[in-house]
Nucleic acid binder design. Structure first.
Lengths: 195, 195
DNA sequence: GTCTATATAGGGATAGAC
DNA sequence: GTCTATCCCTATATAGAC
């Protein structure tokens, strides 16, 4: 299978440039407040040209969502598949740390446009992605697991997202290796799994 | 001093009802995707009536922001004022837990509309609120504090927000008292302050 | 693949009656 | 305090030329 992100591929090059600019603008200004005219302007061509590459504005957002889904969350499928013990959950969170560090911009986009992305998700629920977020919610809600453990799972998850995404660009001066080590330590402290 | 949230008070009653509906719709649909017509419809009157109570749509969002600012974040001023040692930071986070538990809906609104709220903030930077978020960023970025401690501060902050807000309505069946106890424990584990 | 021009719709906001 | 009617603007999206 090829790597076509969501729809039939056309030019490839300018398509990706559109996505890069959209990623930036959607993140700083928000999805709705960003107009296609603005994106086009930044790329040096006109608004209508975008419609050659994407059939709608929403499709641009969807493609960005799929970027994360493809090379981001795919790696998380394994660790989350089984019923989670604390050690398995820790393994999952280790992966999450790596993914966030590698695709931070995409995570920030998602964090800052949750309403728009939820709408997307509701409209296309028949589609190919069976949703990591639902699986997370299920894990946190699983009544077979005792409350303390569920809170620890959710908190450790939140510590990573909160510390690396919610909080903005603090730690920009710190290397990914250092951050990975630090956040693994935190995860261990929360999950009370040995270092 | 009276309790006027942001502008001159007029009716009070319907003003608050507008805010309640707006809080709900802004949260589930997002600020931009919610129209004033929709808010008015839910209240049984017409769009124009809203303009008697608020001078603009943005002002509704601002009033909701001020709600949190007033009876939410006011309580956090004390613990954050001094230069933070781990124990002081823990005290601050204890307060934060209480605030989130008490005003969860407002926190979720903020989490789901960060772009719109940032725009608000940029436009009104001359105004009365000298911004908790900037102080947080400053604390996390303070180069006088060693990296590990800053990561712990940010992570503990993220654990609370992530575990109670980001993650949605899991734990809705759990009492606030239980949650408070659980999250205090987590904070202690992350900050390595004694139980 | 990109352009100009245009169709169409919806939203925020105001005026003025009641 | 709430209404109807309207203004105005911006945005997405399409048609068709180049």
């Amino acid at each position: 299978m090829s790597t076509s992100p969501s729809l039939e591929r056309t030019s490839g090059d300018t398509r990706d440039r559109i996505l890069d600019i959209a990623l930036e603008l959607f993140t700083v200004k928000g999805y709705e407040k960003t107009s296609l005219r603005e994106i086009a302007e930044r790329l040096g061509f006109s608004k209508a040209a975008i419609y050659y590459h994407f059939k709608s504005k929403e499709d641009i957002l969807f493609a960005l969502h799929m970027r994360l889904h493809a090379f981001g969350l795919g790696a998380l499928d394994g660790p989350l598949s089984t019923n989670n013990s604390p050690t398995e959950w820790t393994a999952f969170l280790y992966q999450l740390i790596d993914q966030v560090l590698e695709h931070r911009a995409l995570f920030i986009l998602h964090e800052r446009n949750r309403a728009a992305l939820d709408a997307l998700h509701n409209e296309r629920h028949g589609a190919e992605h069976d949703d990591l977020e639902a699986r997370l919610q299920a894990a946190f809600s699983d009544q077979k697991v005792k409350l303390e453990d569920r809170v620890r799972m959710a908190s450790a998850f939140g510590a990573i997202l909160g510390g690396l995404v919610l909080v903005g660009n603090v730690f920009a001066d710190t290397s990914s290796d250092d951050l990975r080590a630090q956040f693994r330590m935190i995860v261990n402290d929360i999950m009370r799994t040995g270092a």
